[in-house]
């Protein structure tokens, strides 16, 4: 792991996105050269009702769907509202902007540059991954959940 700081961007659309639109955008972004890590953020959609009188009941939700990015199937666990990307350098930015223009069409969106992803392991990360955790994995999946990040086939 080098100490290089890779540029990160945050894509915020005007509305929370349907799975088909996320799938379309992800496929465009995943085929763009120079994207290192992708993080889909949003409101969590649990499979069962987590609390209240109906706790433990099934929670069917039309936004919790399995999408296909490249050859990889990916189960959405959130209603996607924000997309974070880490890039190798700033070169892929125009391609990402073009992909957003194409996919969001009638929706407005904003792209911001900054530091958005977790950079240091938290206590929960330490408990799960140990002292020598790979910093690329930190923050890519909820350390308390059993599922890990999805690894897409690279373009290199």
């Amino acid at each position: 792991m080098t100490d290089a700081i890779y540029p990160q961007i945050r894509i915020v659309p005007e509305r929370l996105l349907n799975p088909d639109r996320v799938e379309k955008l992800m496929n465009l972004i995943a085929t763009t050269e120079g994207v290192r890590r992708i993080l889909l953020n949003g409101q969590r959609l649990p499979a069962t009702v987590p609390y209240g009188p109906a706790r433990g009941m099934e929670n069917p939700h039309p936004m919790r769907k399995t999408i296909k990015v490249g050859d990889q199937e990916l189960e959405l666990q959130v209603h996607v509202g924000t997309i974070l990307l880490e890039l190798e350098n700033r070169d892929p930015l125009p391609a990402i902007r073009a992909a957003c223009d194409e996919v969001f069409a009638e929706l407005s969106y904003s792209i911001k540059e900054g530091r958005f992803m977790k950079s240091e392991p938290s206590l929960a990360d330490y408990a799960k991954y140990g002292p020598d955790a790979d910093k690329d994995i930190i923050g890519m999946a909820d350390p308390k959940s059993k599922s890990g990040p999805v690894i897409l086939q690279g373009l290199k």
Binding site: R15, L16, Q43, R44, A54, N59, H61, M63
Partner: peptide, 14 residues
């Protein structure tokens, strides 16, 4: 929260 694409307010339990 932002609305869903169809204009509905987000509801975790739909």
């Amino acid at each position: 929260l932002r609305l869903a694409e169809d204009g509905m307010m987000f509801d975790m339990l739909q």
